[in-house]
Amino acid sequence: MKKLFLFLLFCHGSSSVKHSVKYFLTASSGLPNFPEFVGALQVDDILVAYCDTNTQRVEPKQEWVKLFLEKNPEHLEIYRRECFEDVPSFFKDRIRGLKHLFRQSGGVHILQKITGFEWDETTGEVIGFMQFGYDGEDFISFDLKTKTWIALKPEAALFKLRWDADKSRITYTESLLTQVFPELLMDYVDYGKIFLLKTERPSVSLLQKTPSSPLSCHATGFYPDRAEMFWRKDGEELHEDVEHGEILPNHDGTFQMSVDLNISSVTPEDWGRYECVFHLSGVKEDIVTKLDKAEIRTNWGKTGIRNDGEKPTDRTVLIIVPVVVFIFIFITVIGFMAHKKKKATRPPPSSDNDTELSTKLNPET
């Protein structure tokens, strides 16, 4: 993780099968019309639960999560307590301490925490992480290999010294990242596997704005977002005169993407040598679309008419859905998982009886 931001774009995976559970915590100061505290939980980069201090509700964002919480009401109660009672006030206090540390007065300030676990089912690689950011920049993170904290800004040096010296907290953090989170991820993947592991193939169309515009091969309606799309000639992937677009979400939870090809130098007799290939992770058969002038849908000439004189269907209209996602955060998980699994040993309270969160974010307490 190079940067933590107030807003987080959906992540796009590679062809390998990866699973992850991520908790996001964000506290803000001086930001009008935005909650002082927001929490979110993502499983496999899909938002599954959300809370904020404005709505005062924990909101499941997936049907399977709603069912999971109904069967495990103790989880919902812990989420409520962490979202609206314990964590927000502690983060608010820590922002005041950081503003003092950075000699700031007034203005907008953001404190963030991301923590979780990733598992690559294909390679077996596992990664546990915990990191704090302040005002859009990395501040301090935990190195699981060395079991030490890394100061990512000079101002974080005091935090590192205090946190490295707290061996019980180091042990507890390591337990969270190597025992608690992996078990939690397995629980979620197992319970929601019908939804998390589903695949939906897209419809693919050839689109062109004007006769001189690049030709766009557009796929929409696929799931998950672990997909690849490219142009090839005579069976070989093309890299020149090709521009790849981002994977974007549709309103129904599926995704869309496109890849453009500059066909200005392609002679009519060579068109049959070009193909657009769409590959979806977990699906063996690719969708191959040959470069055929009769299949190109355009918007030149009469509005709404294809170059073959037919009206385009709704599925062929290019839908660009801007996506901006709150860097939602979801509770600290520490109380949640300790209550659920009781496998992590809670560190002894600090001398001033502050909480785990407030101690972490104020090296002078």
Rank of each mutant, 00 (worst) to 15 (best):
G107M: 00
G39N: 09
F10E: 14
R232G: 05
M186P: 01
F24M: 09
L69N: 11
K66W: 01
K66I: 00
D314E: 15
E74H: 14
S351Q: 06
G13P: 12
A294E: 15
V58N: 03
F7S: 02
V288H: 04
S105D: 13
F326D: 02
V180K: 04
A40V: 14
F195S: 15
G309N: 12
I140E: 04
K233T: 01
D354I: 10
G136T: 01
L69A: 10
F159V: 06
K341S: 11
L152W: 02
G116V: 11
W149T: 04
T199D: 01
H251M: 10
L215D: 02
L25H: 09
S350C: 13
S265G: 05
I140T: 06
V189M: 04
D252Q: 06
V38R: 14
S205H: 15
S350F: 12
S141D: 04
A344Q: 10
E74K: 12
D143R: 06
W64E: 11
D143M: 11
K193M: 10
G253A: 09
G272M: 07
L248H: 10
S89V: 09
V277L: 14
L176G: 07
A40Y: 08
K302G: 06
V333H: 09
H109F: 08
P60G: 07
R169S: 14
Q208G: 00
F255Q: 09
S213G: 12
T316N: 05
I194N: 15
I127Q: 14
K209Q: 11
D260L: 12
V58F: 10
T171C: 02
M1R: 14
T298P: 03
D52G: 01
G133F: 01
L76M: 08
L6V: 06
L177T: 04
T173F: 02
D270Q: 06
L177P: 02
A40W: 06
S203V: 01
F195C: 06
L357R: 05
N54A: 02
I305D: 08
R162I: 07
V189F: 13
H218Q: 02
Y172E: 03
W149Y: 13
D45Y: 05
E240R: 03
F181Q: 12
C217K: 02
D234H: 08
P35N: 03
E85Q: 15
D354T: 09
T123H: 08
I114F: 08
N72I: 05
I95L: 02
P268Q: 11
A219I: 05
P312G: 03
E310Q: 02
D45N: 15
F336H: 12
R94V: 10
I95V: 11
P348E: 15
Q256M: 13
H251V: 15
A294W: 13
G272S: 07
I263Q: 07
Y274V: 05
P202T: 05
Q112W: 05
D225P: 00
S16E: 12
H218T: 15
P202R: 08
N54Y: 14
S351A: 15
G136I: 03
F159E: 00
E295G: 00
V288G: 05
F84Q: 03
I263S: 00
V108K: 11
T289L: 08
N307Y: 05
D190K: 13
L144Q: 04
H218C: 09
S213W: 04
I46N: 13
D314C: 04
D135P: 09
T26H: 00
T115K: 03
F34W: 10
D45E: 14
N262G: 04
P88H: 01
A27D: 08
F34S: 14
Y134S: 01
